[in-house]
């Protein structure tokens, strides 16, 4: 069931909403551009509806392995200094971030 041609596959509002979910701050121009570009990919994706998929199981793991687990044995952790050396901001051996607002 393809979308009628007159209707865009994706609205500008949807793009703006998705950008928020994806934590991306898009410009108005980017939203316009993505509305068109993502819309055309999504239109193509509607081709998938041409295939009868009734009762077809999804593939999540190509090899179909199950029950891959490890023993509950402690392995050495990595050096804290090496980890923290890559952090943008550190205080008291912890990762420092701006305050989380909007919370009580």
């Amino acid at each position: 069931m393809a979308e009628p041609d007159s209707q865009p596959a994706l609205s500008r509002d949807e793009v703006a909403h998705v950008a928020k979910l994806a934590l991306l701050d898009l410009t108005e121009e980017e939203i316009d551009l993505f509305t068109v570009q993502l819309g055309s990919v999504i239109e193509t994706a509607h081709d998938m509806n041409n295939l009868d998929l009734e009762g077809v199981q999804p593939t999540h793991h190509p090899l179909g392995l199950t029950n891959v687990v490890r023993e509950d044995v402690v392995r050495p952790s990595i050096d804290r200094a090496e980890v923290l050396s890559q952090a943008p901001d550190v205080e008291d051996d912890r990762f420092k971030v701006p305050p989380a607002l909007g919370e009580d």
């Binding site: 008291d92 912890r94 420092k96 971030v97 701006p98 305050p99 989380a100 919370e103 009580d104």
Partner: peptide, 10 residues
């Protein structure tokens, strides 16, 4: 949390 200046994560 609402009045914190920053947060530290462990």
């Amino acid at each position: 949390i609402s009045s914190a200046q920053y947060s530290l994560i462990d």
